[in-house]
Design a protein around this nucleic acid. Sequence first.
DNA 1: ACCTGAACACCGTTCAAGT
DNA 2: ACCTGAACACCGTTCAAGT
Lengths: 190, 190
Amino acid sequence: MTDRSFHHGNLRLVLLEAAADTLREQGLDGLSLRELARGAGVSHAAPRRHFPDRQALLDALAVDGFERLTGLIVEAGHEDGRPYPQRFAAVARVFVNFATDEAALLELMFTTKSARQVPELDDAAGAFFQAIGTFYASAPGRTGRTSADEQRLRRLLVATLQGIATLAAGGRIDAAEVEQLIEDATAIFA
Amino acid sequence: MTDRSFHHGNLRLVLLEAAADTLREQGLDGLSLRELARGAGVSHAAPRRHFPDRQALLDALAVDGFERLTGLIVEAGHEDGRPYPQRFAAVARVFVNFATDEAALLELMFTTKSARQVPELDDAAGAFFQAIGTFYASAPGRTGRTSADEQRLRRLLVATLQGIATLAAGGRIDAAEVEQLIEDATAIFA
DNA sequence: ACCTGAACACCGTTCAAGT
DNA sequence: ACCTGAACACCGTTCAAGT
């Protein structure tokens, strides 16, 4: 219950939360294992018990990011009573806002560094894709069906949302243009 | 004319080309100013004359990337005689192939690190957007017109291509799925 | 103008040792 | 099991000095 309660097994969680904050506020370059250790009041070698190397920490952050984004998407797509196009636009907005607020994290999530193999990350990404697909299939007249054509359209939808999110996060388009893109995407996909 | 001809002013170019190779083969993490200097047979402080810091080198790489990609896009969109949808698919393929071959570079191009202000990069990105727009306007029946609606569609096109490219470069979809995405995007935009 | 060489303050990673 | 502390081999960046 003291300030050092992380000495009893939750150092991993403490490091992950601090890392997520740093990533949000300082970007990837500002993230140092040694500084995280200092912040947690622990030796610089202690994180190694929980993350074998720096990349393992980044992978864990990406997994958490996918899980959070998936939760947000499911929530936004689930607003019963509202017409489908409105829910569609809400899902798109959630994605884009996430990308803008967590630009560095989005990068970790969608760009696979080198030739690693990280099952947890693949699973988390798969669950995210699945959530988008499930929402998309919930449109009136589409419920239940999962034809090959719809799988393709679902992938195109993910790509489109990803592209809008990246352009928004990268600052290449402004807020008004983002809103227009969401409306146009809604017109096409909803 | 000797091996050390970069001592006469082209060290910048030598560094940029070596950096582009390293970026392609080793990714961003494998890129070190000191190692580039060693490779060029020059002291580790020499690059500083041409690039004030590491980020300046990365910015220069991103500018070059945009210029190369813009050239490829213009070329692919300009194949006279072929019907527009075929040229459209060719443009999309060029973009996606570039993203796959130069994944680390694509990241430098489309994600703005921190709050820098790099006019050359903005210009290069703007020229790229412009090239896509010019090609898009060259479609039969659209030539010359630049309505607000078409600007919006052009932006959506860029976003879609960017999303497909990112998913492909990140290894989240395979080659067959990429080709399907390009076909579906062609069906919508061409 | 352009480059060198030493120096500074950081890293990530490893490993023997402690409790 | 979990953490410490010293050590190693790297970084990026700075700066006086050389030519």
